[in-house]
Design a protein around this nucleic acid. Sequence first.
DNA 1: GCGACCTTTCACAAAACTGTAACCATCGTG
DNA 2: CACGATGGTTACAGTTTTGTGAAAGGTCGC
Lengths: 230, 230
Amino acid sequence: MQRLIFAVEDDADISRLVAHHLQGAGFRVRTFANSPSVIGEAERQHPALFLLDIMVPGPDGLELCRRIRQNPGLAAVPVIFLTARTAEADRVLGLELGGDDYITKPFSPRELVARVKAVLRRFEQPLPPAVTRAGDIEIDSGAMLLKVGGRIVETTATEFRLLEYFARHPDRVFTRDQLLDAVWRDTAFVTPRSVDVYVRRLREKIEQDPEDPRYLITVRGAGYRFEAPK
Amino acid sequence: MQRLIFAVEDDADISRLVAHHLQGAGFRVRTFANSPSVIGEAERQHPALFLLDIMVPGPDGLELCRRIRQNPGLAAVPVIFLTARTAEADRVLGLELGGDDYITKPFSPRELVARVKAVLRRFEQPLPPAVTRAGDIEIDSGAMLLKVGGRIVETTATEFRLLEYFARHPDRVFTRDQLLDAVWRDTAFVTPRSVDVYVRRLREKIEQDPEDPRYLITVRGAGYRFEAPK
DNA sequence: GCGACCTTTCACAAAACTGTAACCATCGTG
DNA sequence: CACGATGGTTACAGTTTTGTGAAAGGTCGC
């Protein structure tokens, strides 16, 4: 679940620097030396944030921001401007165009990361429904608590996320790969068989009889399904 | 419990900008390009705050504010003026008319959000109970006093705010980042790990056995949760 | 300007979680 | 019934996350 950041910056040094530090902070980064293809790519890849140098070739950063704001699919994505110009005029201009913050060069890596995180945090959606129920299972997402038959059952973070995902999509078969994509943070180097292991660990925690599961059903040749008994 | 803000502003760009940033900060926003219907809608929807451009068509912002103040149902709702005029005279005028703050254009998103939050905070004072209790912990926010089992326990300001925040949102997991946002004054340059240190200090002060905490629970892979024993 | 205290970071230790491989069981088919 | 394929189970080693103590740096009041 690493978030993707689009950085538009024509100076290769700065561009590399930005990418490096943001990656160090756990983000995926896609850099662009100029603006033409940015919007199109963004529609496809859904970045979580734009980092725009104001002065780039082609439509400049301000213009790019304007287009982002006018694009229905992208309008809600936050924008941070990157600029060498410190004049107040620019600042104002950038912000009035719908930027969410700005960073003046030279900047420290910390400042960069801090501002990016701060803006992302501000735009994070509040969490949807707090409690999901199925049979005698109660999943409290807000508290990150699992109760089975009224009893609190300890889970690890991954177990919890997996069960939560299942319970929110009951009676649907998921392949192991789908589950990895949906639940695991970094799906790249994980074997689909790991899902088996987690399903087993969950069965031990939620099933009356793990040998004869009533919630987490194996669907041979396909994957698993979570059944919600009436 | 997202609070609703009424923004009255005739410039569509600014209006969109305002809505965007306040939504990003977790508010619901209703915008009006002119003033006639504002009061009526407000009576129905109970906004938590008005953001009024001084110069809008129809009755202007100052007049609108006057009417809000005269309306029994709305008189207590805070008003922030939005204005291009920076002259001191305006400011005074605005505040004398019952505005609670004012923002001059151009403004930064941060300033907008900060002022809105500040004003709301000021008006929320009477609402939250002065004393929050959980188990044998008693948090007197007004007096900034913490009692554990009837005994006064000394805390620093940050410790107190953190515990207060936890106690007001019991049984909910917060990530370190969320806690920084909620409790720390300037979140930008603080490592999430600082939260760990504060949690530990709080445990030393409120837990019978800091090794086996009953209030401040670690949720591995997520953050911390404050549990209120029955 | 000094001292006391608060805040934050850092480095290391400890604890818990994760993912895999290897092996076993079961299923379905010819 | 044999066999290949699929899923189940387990232990463990590596990794990640959290706890902890100490120390640096900052702030405030005097």
